[in-house]
């Protein structure tokens, strides 16, 4: 475990804490894409299939349980909680997220880490995570005003994978000296999708003005 990976995991955890904080304190999920959250449930479940078969460390197992548990809880809040579900921007969250699944699955069949069920699903999860943020980014473009917690959530979510990229570079030079095409290319695509959001987020933060994404 290196500092970059730990920072990445903590940033990822913090993003989820911020989102849960927003939902629980404001009892609202306005501006949050349910479709992105549903994709994350699929990402975590297909990635952590080895949760009970391969023990890496207490930290690894605990974090996997937290990520699966919180992502399911967020979908539950947005779909079933009597107050929160009323605040879901249903008619703006229109990205056809189910269209993302077949290409990622086909890509996982074509380029798996290994041709076994768990590795194909692991690769699928890596590819899907790269594009899972698209419904959320589209929703942000449509949101007239993005509240601070939502903006912070998306920023932290983008920052975590950027930190993972630094971790991969660090591990390449200090440990493995192996190129890992699947997570690296997916991670670069994933982080690149946040590029314009990062630009407008940092600009709004520097100018102390409300975050707005051009339509």
């Amino acid at each position: 475990m290196n500092i970059f990976r730990l920072a990445g995991d903590m940033t990822h955890l913090l993003s989820i804490v911020v989102l849960l904080l927003k939902i629980r304190t404001t009892k609202s999920c306005a501006g949050i894409s349910l479709k992105t959250q549903e994709l994350y449930v699929i990402v975590f479940i297909t990635r952590y299939l080895d949760l009970f078969t391969r023990y890496v460390s207490f930290y690894n197992t605990a974090m996997k349980l937290v990520f699966i548990g919180t992502s399911v809880a967020i979908v539950w809040y947005m779909r079933l909680h009597k107050v929160v579900k009323q605040t879901y921007s249903r008619d703006e969250d229109t990205f056809k997220h189910y269209l993302l699944i077949p290409p990622c699955f086909i890509l996982a069949l074509l380029i798996p880490l290994e041709f076994t069920v768990t590795e194909i699903l692991w690769s699928f999860s890596i590819y899907l995570e790269a594009v899972a943020i698209l419904p959320q980014l589209l929703l942000l473009q449509r949101s007239s005003n993005i509240d601070n917690l939502t903006g912070s959530y998306v920023f932290l979510l983008g920052a975590y994978r950027a930190l993972y990229i630094v971790n991969w570079v660090y591990r390449f030079f200090t440990e493995t000296h192996k190129i890992r095409w699947i997570p690296w290319i997916s991670g670069l695509v994933q982080t690149a999708l946040y590029a314009d959001f990062f630009y407008y987020y940092i600009k709004s933060w520097k100018n102390h003005e409300k975050l707005r994404l051009p339509a």
């Binding site: 391969r54 690894n60 974090m63 996997k64 990520f67 880490l113 192996k178």
Partner: peptide, 10 residues
């Protein structure tokens, strides 16, 4: 080794 290392991350 590659497989192991890629699966110790989240």
């Amino acid at each position: 080794a590659a497989k192991e290392s890629s699966h110790d991350e989240l």
